[in-house]
Design a protein around this nucleic acid. Structure first.
Lengths: 233, 233
DNA sequence: GTCTATACCAAGATAGAC
DNA sequence: GTCTATCTTGGTATAGAC
């Protein structure tokens, strides 16, 4: 596999390719299985060359985390407002993003031990994301889409955070899967939806029902949850 | 620290002590930090001696898992029936148990890679436990304590499984904790309770209200959720 | 920028004396 | 059953030629 000629030749092409390949390996095989050797092999370069671009393995993790942090913050910050249609599709978008960096959620322990310098960042981002989620919940209540019992918001936010972060881990442990598909991600959206569904107002159900994305609206009978048959590798 | 004289001297005392010490180390420091060296040190024996009692590190994990499997199955199998009081305290008991083997939930990836022979067992137990949870939910519906919308049971069971399994992981990532306290476990019980709370019948609320354990019944205003202040190490 | 060759280290595991 | 000493492996990282 030769490197294709690039528009800006020599500027970052190998580096970016290494990052893409590393992300793919981490997601597919788990952070504990991915060695610098395997990364170099998959990128089609030598291990020594890899260390030219990233002086430590930790630097690789830091670069990937940086990517994820930017993407996740810019995504969550766009959610809000009084227009119900603004919330449609937010959950799938978030799941899609966390899906493409799923090693961060699934292999947290290994990541932390391979990149101790990431601990602060991981925690800071987690706190930040939870705060954004809480803000979205508050905005939905303000927009009359959600009605939560007193003191329930914190618990709901925490549960949503847990289920969306650990859905992948749960599937891996429970189903013993090798490969996870897009269908599992949609299933995860439905799991999260069922957390706040009991608190949606009639107005929200009506508004979401008109939205295109069935994952946010009232569940359709035609939309069946992907069952265990699809889950087994 | 000398070994105290035992009622049955020489029969299993070192072996059991090693198991206890290993469990403690795994829970406290994480599966990726615990080496055979650290286990031997903590047990007050030599590494060579450790390998006399457990021929591989994997054997240690297998023995610990066996302990947990027996305990968890015998716990869940006792839950059920039409008497509401039978359910009071079940959730805290389950949390207490999973708490004392929390490395299994928190460090799944490391456990699987250190003990590949455990994968089948872990998965089998997970499936079995979920089935037990589903059975308990069905029993609660039969007893008139719970009323679930059509098709909601599977999602509720999955969400309960996720939150109860990953509560510890969530706290570790989110709060950056060193030490977890009993308070966090109670907080976790409240999180799980809020999952099924919307579906409890009036009869259940009344019955649980009479039960001793506030975690299963209607939330008391006097029982406050432990806040971030208590969470920080 | 990319390669070859190699140093270094930590962790699991074994041999054999006591 | 317990110890000391040692082997082995595999993964991160460096030196230096091209």
């Amino acid at each position: 596999m030769r490197k294709p000629p690039d528009a800006t030749p020599g500027r970052g092409s190998t580096r970016e390719r290494v990052l893409d390949v590393t992300l793919s390996l981490l997601n597919r095989h788990g952070a504990d299985q991915v060695t610098t050797r395997s990364i170099a092999d998959a990128a089609g370069i030598n291990e020594g060359n890899l260390y030219y671009h990233f002086r430590t393995k930790e630097a690789l993790y830091l670069a990937l985390f940086d990517r994820f942090e930017r993407a996740s913050l810019s995504l969550l910050e766009t959610i809000g407002g009084d227009d119900p249609s603004g919330y449609a599709g937010a959950l799938p978008a978030w799941f899609r993003l966390s899906w493409s960096y799923r090693f961060l959620f699934r292999d947290t322990l290994a990541v932390r031990s391979a990149a101790p310098g990431l601990r602060r960042g991981l925690r800071r981002l987690a706190v930040r994301l939870m705060a954004e989620m809480a803000r979205v919940m508050a905005a939905m209540q303000h927009a009359g889409l959600l009605r939560l019992p007193d003191g329930e918001q914190d618990r709901l936010v925490a549960n949503i955070g847990i289920v969306s972060c650990y859905w992948v881990s749960f599937l891996t442990l429970h189903r013993g899967m090798r490969a996870l598909t897009e269908a599992h991600m949609q299933w995860g959206c439905l799991q999260v939806r069922s957390l706040y569904a009991p608190f949606l107002t009639e107005a929200a159900l009506a508004a979401f029902d008109r939205a295109q994305d069935p994952l946010v609206g009232r569940p359709r009978t035609t939309l069946s949850r992907p069952g265990p048959a699809a889950a087994e590798g």
